[in-house]
Design a protein around this nucleic acid. Structure first.
Lengths: 348, 348
DNA sequence: CAAGACCGTGGAAGCGCTCTCACACCGAGT
DNA sequence: ACTCGGTGTGAGAGCGCTTCCACGGTCTTG
């Protein structure tokens, strides 16, 4: 009992208190103490309070390693970010996602492990990490076409959920996305209804599903209206990319009277170029952005844009993941698609 | 031996391979296998290769829970972000920090656990988490005055390092920072040398050490030059905050001919307001920003600013943390201060 | 009033790993 | 020849926890 060995600050002899000490103090067995701590099934209220008191007195917290050794759960999930470019992190999209994820995770006292992978060996390392169940599940912020993550995860039968439709194995894993096709269409339609006739688009990168789908939506709306679909330039979703794309666009098609950009940042860049070229927005050229993550309200004029409920999407993805972790296999390949909504401001 | 229970995909009977299986396959004892896997001290080259082969054949990875149960290490460090406002994440400062941290961590195969705390009970929960050694150490992105994190961490004697000087217990914990005082001074000096005489500052929040120090630096340079130090407005480091501050500033002191902003984002906001008010930059009003994290190059005109080597700072902080984890107590209260450097561009 | 159902409990096994310790073996020194 | 330091090895004891199982007690039910 009276182990004497270099008393640490708090918590009696030798480090943090163990279940054993709690049990002893509460006057029950380790088994009962364990039960009391984990939800208290089959525990008399008397024992329960005794244990509760002891826990409090000792400042006890279960040793997670010991626990997960036997339960085979780690109570942590990984957030996989392929290509952790600085851009990814400073992107408001990612920030919102993180917010949604942590909100849900906090409810259940789960931890978030950040798994960043640069291409190459790093990916192998992470796959090994995932394969050996160091985490209960993985949340993937899907980005580029190149990563075959979805394939691997599907093969692993590790619970996982994607934010944004994965490029491959989209039918085998759970994911949450917005209807980017409809969004692209809405952007174009808004301009068409407004009376624009020479409408261009600054599309996203063509190795990201969001980029491709939005472009396709724009195309279909344009075709339906009998308008030309040749004024297409690609950007990389950044403000700078928007500037470059807009410059190219104005060179090639100086007669544009409307532009649909696949992200607000690109729209903001385009806006700057348009203004600099002496065109008024929306007077000479009407402009529609995409995302509505804050940027859209800070431009002059404020951007008309398509809103994505990013935070909700991330929450939903996390819920989907938790359900899988809890053994509900019915959601393994579920997809949840949110509708985008047009937000009318001043640029169109 | 021949456990038969729903064979999982890979790895023989019942789940992922254990050390025991590796040992058996290699024809050695568990102890030897363990040694071979962990650096191979006192292992014959014969046994070593046998184990290596077995590991490869089985696709074995040590169970981290079991391992950390006995080693008392988790091979993961926490990144504590008090107040995980969306702003924090979308801030390029944070993005750079994260990059520096992960770069160092990757070298050692350590995992990053994200610890976000909203004020209140959340903080208690995290403290409990830290206290019970679920992680080997904590990296804190210090932010606000309110959180008494440093005090608690110092009391816990859990290895930790701060990025940015903590408000309290700065003498008890390791931290990395830039010399914000010198930076503030440099900003003011640049304008003074340029010939500005009515110099204002858009300071940061006064509950963040970076905000306070930069302001103090500005003040001291101004005093030395015999200039008035009354034109001070506070902002919250955001672009919007910069706009508001600049507007107030122009109202109160329409005669300003120079402004030092405590962040590039605020400078960008101010720039917009200045331009809108018909003032040319740097012609009528010279402007200096702070941080140089990319924003400064994207404004028109590009911002003259004070550069902070964020990434290096984060790396350094991580190294400091790892040293502590490795038992080097000499760095427990070490501080590393990076010098800021003036980057001349077009706005001043 | 006996027979079962059920509840709360503690003993004990074991999760997969590391690490101490004792042991066998080797070549080198006396 | 005998001891000695050194080296590679395996048996075994745990790390702190959950959980199966058996057990006594109480409460129903026929």
């Amino acid at each position: 009992m009276a182990r004497v060995e270099g008393t640490r600050s708090l918590a009696g002899p030798g480090g943090s208190p163990t279940l054993d000490e709690v049990a002893r103090l509460a006057g029950v067995s380790r088994a009962t103490a364990s039960r009391a701590i984990n939800g208290g099934n089959r525990v008399s209220s008397q024992a329960q309070t005794a244990v509760d008191d002891a826990v409090r007195a000792l400042g006890y917290t279960p040793n997670p390693a010991a626990r997960s050794l036997v339960t085979r759960r780690t109570d942590s999930v990984g957030l996989v970010v392929p290509e952790p470019d600085e851009r990814v992190f400073s992107d408001p999209f990612f920030a919102r996602t993180l917010r949604g994820v942590t909100r849900v995770l906090a409810e259940r006292d789960l931890q978030l492990v950040l798994l960043l992978t640069r291409p190459g060996e790093e990916e192998a390392r992470m796959l090994r990490y995932l394969r050996n169940r160091h985490i209960d599940g993985a949340l993937v912020v899907s980005h580029h076409r190149s990563d075959s993550l979805a394939d691997h995860l599907a093969a692993l039968d590790l619970p996982c959920a994607f934010v944004g439709r994965p490029w491959t194995s989209a039918d085998k894993v759970a994911y949450v996305d917005t209807d980017n096709l409809a969004g692209g269409r809405q952007g174009a339609s808004a301009l068409i209804e407004r009376g624009c006739r020479r409408i261009a688009t600054i599309a996203g990168p063509d190795d990201m599903s969001a980029g491709v789908d939005r472009l396709e939506g724009w195309r279909s709306a344009m075709r339906e209206a009998g308008l030309a679909t040749d004024a297409v330039v690609h950007g990389d979703f950044t403000e700078r990319g928007g500037e470059i794309a807009a410059t190219t666009l104005l060179e090639r098609h100086p007669d544009v009277d409307g532009i649909v950009a696949a992200s607000d940042l690109m729209a903001a860049g385009a806006l700057r170029v348009l203004t600099a070229s002496g065109r008024s927005v929306p007077g000479d050229v009407a402009l529609v952005g995409y995302d509505d993550l804050g940027v859209a309200e800070r431009t002059v004029p404020q951007l008309t844009t398509i809103r994505n409920p990013i935070s909700e999407m991330a929450e939903q993805a996390t819920r989907l993941l938790l359900q899988q972790i809890d053994g509900d296999s019915s959601v393994r390949a579920m997809r949840v698609i949110y509708p985008p909504t047009l937000v009318r401001r001043d640029s169109a």
